[in-house]
């Protein structure tokens, strides 16, 4: 039964994935046809190796990291809609934690996908309405310059603080190792390290912490 459902998710995911790829490639084709202006081959040959060297390698790491955490349905959706680390990932994790289900079980898969699809719809609608309603008038500047600007400047500490607190009561012992290792790594090795790379180190620290706590019977 489990095999059937996951296999179906992969089938749907791959089909939508191909659709997304075609849609994405159609965007520059449509723009070029409309403007009757095509990119210089020399320009693309100079630009693309720089971008691909950076982002195609990152993509391999992202796929390996996020698929096990979000489950296939959530992953297929998240990689099309983007903004994974700052939105889809915390949203999926929060939903699975609240529903008390684990990723990569059928229940986890279903809950993660529901949360991410709702999140994707909400984000897409908010951005579309925001651009259509306020984009032309320039009033979107209020979000970065107005009275409420600090609220949006600090959305990440607010989001991850609330998410971390959800684990404090249940797993505070497990939190110590990744927290200490994460801060020390940033302080003494590389303060510019992005969360996407740092999470490899903090996940390993957390798992080692669990193994030690388990051995000492303190879990």
């Amino acid at each position: 039964m489990q095999k059937d459902y996951f296999d179906r998710v992969h089938k749907w995911g791959i089909l939508w994935n191909i659709g997304a790829l075609l849609t994405l490639l159609c965007i520059p084709v449509a723009i070029c046809s409309y403007l009757n202006a095509w990119p210089e081959i020399d320009a693309l040959l100079s630009i693309m190796p720089k971008l691909m060297g950076l982002y195609w390698l990152t993509a391999i790491v992202e796929v390996i990291t996020y698929v096990p955490l979000l489950g296939p349905g959530g992953a297929y959706l998240s990689f099309v809609t983007g903004n994974i680390t700052n939105l889809k990932l915390p949203c999926g994790l929060k939903a699975m934690e609240q529903a008390k289900v684990r990723a990569n079980t059928e229940e986890g898969e279903v809950i993660s996908t529901i949360a991410i699809s709702i999140s994707a719809i909400t984000t897409t609608v908010i951005i579309a309405v925001g651009v259509l309603a306020f984009g032309a008038t320039g009033s979107l500047q209020l979000l970065t310059e107005g009275t409420l600007a600090p609220a949006f400047e600090y959305v990440l500490p607010a989001l991850f603080g609330a998410l971390a607190a959800g684990y404090i009561l249940k797993h505070w012992k497990v939190m110590i190792a990744p927290f200490v290792v994460g801060v020390l790594f940033l302080a003494f090795v590389d303060p510019t390290m992005g969360a996407g790379t740092l999470m490899f180190i903090t996940i390993v620290a957390a798992v080692i912490g669990v193994l030690i706590l388990n051995k000492a019977n303190k879990l």
Binding site: P157, A164, V174, P178, G182, T202
Partner: peptide, 26 residues
């Protein structure tokens, strides 16, 4: 219980990466 803890550890590891960055990073 151990399986749950390992699964939670992966989640916590991710969350702590972001928390650490809010404490010391640029």
């Amino acid at each position: 219980k151990f399986g749950d803890a390992i699964s939670a550890a992966a989640f916590i590891g991710i969350v702590m990466a972001f928390v650490s960055r809010e404490i010391y990073s640029y």
